[in-house]
């Protein structure tokens, strides 16, 4: 048995585990974090995708001991105080899920994709999500949802309208245009 410690969705855990234990089984069977499911045994489907130290990984393809000392975010750690992320909202609004089994992995992979490319084209989204399989939706609404979430995230990052009596948070003079790429396109 090997001693590991990691932070998952903001909570720190310490455990003794078999060195061969997969991260996904550590999350599901040891921590009871069953929001992330298992869809295959060949790392093809991506249902088990989580974020490990800032990158999306297929947690069936990572040993728990490899995540020792790391920080893991799962789909269960995305919403804060009941508020969904733009991706969660967009998947709901764009009907980007049916049975929902691929959804945790799809959302985590899309999150990684948008981290690298905040303004992807539909084609870039399709290729970016190539490692995640969905059997229900035919992917079209998933692409739409990622586009919608990307737009929303860009909108949120764009400078907020100046509150009365306050200076602009970015220090630019009032009325100056937002930097290209920050502007929300709806």
């Amino acid at each position: 048995m090997t001693h590991i410690s990691m932070t998952v969705d903001g909570t720190r855990y310490e455990d003794e585990v078999e060195p061969r234990l997969l991260l996904i089984h550590y999350l599901r069977d040891h921590l009871g974090l069953t929001g992330t499911p298992v869809g295959c045994d060949t790392s093809n489907c991506g249902a088990c995708t989580v974020e490990l130290d800032g990158d999306s990984v297929k947690s069936c393809n990572v040993l728990a001991v490899q995540a020792d000392g790391g920080e893991v975010t799962t789909v269960q750690g995305l919403a804060s105080d009941g508020a969904w992320t733009p991706l969660q909202t967009a998947f709901h609004e764009q009907h980007a899920l049916q049975c929902g089994y691929c959804t945790p992995g799809m959302i985590m992979a899309a999150r990684d994709l948008l981290g690298e490319n905040p303004d992807p084209t539909p084609e870039e989204i399709r290729h970016g999500l190539e490692g995640n399989l969905c059997r229900c939706t035919g992917y079209q609404n998933i692409v739409r949802a990622v586009l919608a979430a990307a737009a929303e995230e860009r909108r949120r990052r764009a400078p907020a309208p100046r509150p009365a009596g306050a200076g602009r948070p970015d220090g630019r003079p009032e009325g100056a245009p937002a930097t290209a790429g920050q502007e929300a396109r709806t």
Binding site: T34, P37, T74, V75, Q88, H92, L97, G100, Y101, P104
Partner: peptide, 11 residues
């Protein structure tokens, strides 16, 4: 959808 997009599922 609510439980499915947040991982509060019962598979």
């Amino acid at each position: 959808d609510a439980r499915l997009v947040t991982g509060r599922t019962t598979w």
